[in-house]
Lab assay of single mutants.
Amino acid sequence: QWIQSKREDIVNQMTEACLNQSLDALLSRDLIMKEDYELVSTKPTRTSKVRQLLDTTDIQGEEFAKVIVQKLKDNKQMGLQ
């Protein structure tokens, strides 16, 4: 999976804004449970939030991952090649 192969780059480069947009999009599509949303959003640092989101992606699967990839594209953060 692309996200896993780029995990380190995503953790380093995903902005707080992109992270929040991803969470909002996942929530609005019922792809993330409120508990998982809280787990991510209550982490103390941006990098720990991104790591938690990516860990959740492993469990949730492809549809979940597609939303995150789309948000990275929207925010022009796909220089993660």
Rank of each mutant, 00 (worst) to 15 (best):
E8I: 02
E62T: 03
P44H: 02
N75G: 10
I68A: 08
T42L: 10
Q21H: 04
C18T: 15
L39N: 13
K49N: 02
S5F: 03
S41C: 13
L26P: 07
Q52N: 00
L26M: 03
V11H: 03
D55Y: 06
R29M: 13
Y37N: 07
Q13E: 13
S41N: 15
N20A: 13
W2N: 11
L54H: 05
E62Y: 00
T15Y: 00
N20W: 15
K34R: 12
S5H: 01
D58Q: 14
F64G: 10
I3T: 02
E35C: 07
Q21K: 08
N20K: 15
D55F: 02
V50S: 07
V67C: 08
L54V: 02
E63N: 03
G61L: 05
T42S: 14
E62H: 03
Q60V: 09
K71T: 15
E38T: 11
T15N: 05
T56A: 11
E63C: 05
Q60N: 08
E16R: 01
S28P: 01
Q70C: 03
E8G: 09
V40E: 03
M33C: 15
L31P: 04
N12D: 12
T47G: 11
D30H: 14
K73D: 09
Q70V: 02
T45C: 09
T45K: 00
R29G: 10
T56G: 06
T42M: 14
E16A: 04
E38C: 02
R29A: 13
D24Y: 10
A17P: 08
L19R: 06
T45Y: 00
Q60W: 02
T45I: 01
R51S: 11
V69A: 07
K73P: 03
S48I: 00
I10F: 01
L53I: 05
D74Y: 11
Q13R: 05
D24P: 03
A65H: 06
K73E: 14
D58C: 14
S5Q: 12
L26H: 09
S48E: 15
D24R: 11
I32K: 00
R46S: 05
L26G: 04
Q1H: 07
S48H: 06
F64E: 12
L27W: 10
W2D: 10
K73N: 11
L54S: 03
D30M: 01
L26K: 07
K49L: 01
L26S: 07
S5V: 07
F64L: 09
I32R: 04
W2Q: 07
S41M: 15
V50M: 02
I32Y: 00
Q21I: 01
V69G: 05
T45V: 04
L31Y: 04
D24S: 11
A65M: 00
S5P: 03
Q52K: 06
G61S: 11
I59G: 15
L26W: 00
I3C: 13
V50Q: 04
C18Q: 08
D74E: 12
N20E: 04
D58M: 13
D30Q: 13
S48G: 12
E62D: 03
V40A: 05
L31F: 02
Q60D: 02
A65I: 00
D30R: 13
R51V: 09
A65C: 03
S28N: 00
E35D: 12
L26Q: 09
D30Y: 01
I68P: 06
D9I: 15
L31W: 00
S41H: 12
K73L: 13
